[in-house]
Design a binder for these strands. Structure first.
Lengths: 123, 123
DNA sequence: GTCGTATCTGCGCATCTTCGCATATAGTTC
DNA sequence: GAACTATATGCGAAGATGCGCAGATACGAC
């Protein structure tokens, strides 16, 4: 997609709308603490649903529902192995993007919650 | 503050939970097409509410509500100038983060193609 | 086949979101 | 002061979301 130095690019407005909707859906999927937690757990490799459920301390149905959302938005992949299903982050680019977001979060933590000034993150 | 001196976790779980909640709130604010649109419009500089409302073609109350959310989450700043209020992106780091996300979005545009097709069929 | 475990899905309920309309507040101009 | 524009806020309805529980499905062990 070449960029035109002219003022306005002529792109189909419907496509623009659809692209924004697509972006918003991705962000919305990321917009829940449990799903953030799941993705953070998957950062270092795949996990079974049971693993995730135990780590987060949630109902299995709840885990399933969140995983279904992550699956539907193509953020994760699922691999069936015998009795269980293993989930993993689909594209390492997502991790990279989240790392940049993490820089933003930490730069503005104090704005939103001054109580957590002593928060540290292990790299 | 309950801390685990095990060496495995260096941050207490309550803070971790709070941090995830904070991240989720930011993502959720980004998780709406209208707010995505507003931020994209503000990319190149500040705009008044009226400008935004006209560009997006939405009710002024609707614009105000979305801007209130962006304001509450500290993603934008608002500057009152006489009769009107100008909004701007607060931290260029957000733009940087969104650019990385954009790379992710474009890498997975195929996933969005289904959306595009559905939208075209509606129109 | 039966039993036990892992995962998913349907349902009901409570809560949150989003929109437009109406109204309120602030600033400018006369 | 009145009249006008620009933003913000309250309200209510329609829809979306999240949770736990119960039930369904799939797989392995026996």
């Amino acid at each position: 997609m070449p960029k035109k130095p002219t003022g306005k690019e002529r792109v189909d407005p419907a496509s623009q709308r659809a692209l924004r909707k697509f972006k918003a859906e991705i962000f919305q999927v990321l917009g829940h603490p449990t799903r953030i937690h799941i993705i953070e757990c998957l950062r270092d490799g795949e996990l079974s649903v049971k693993d995730i459920q135990l780590r987060l301390g949630i109902e299995s149905s709840n885990a399933s529902q969140h995983l279904a959302l992550l699956r539907a938005s193509k953020l994760v992949t699922n691999r069936k192995a015998g009795n269980q299903v293993f989930y993993a982050i689909r594209d390492p680019l997502l991790i990279e993007a989240l790392d940049v977001m993490r820089r933003y979060f930490h730069a503005h933590l104090e704005d939103a919650m001054g109580l957590l000034r002593d928060l540290r993150e292990d790299a």
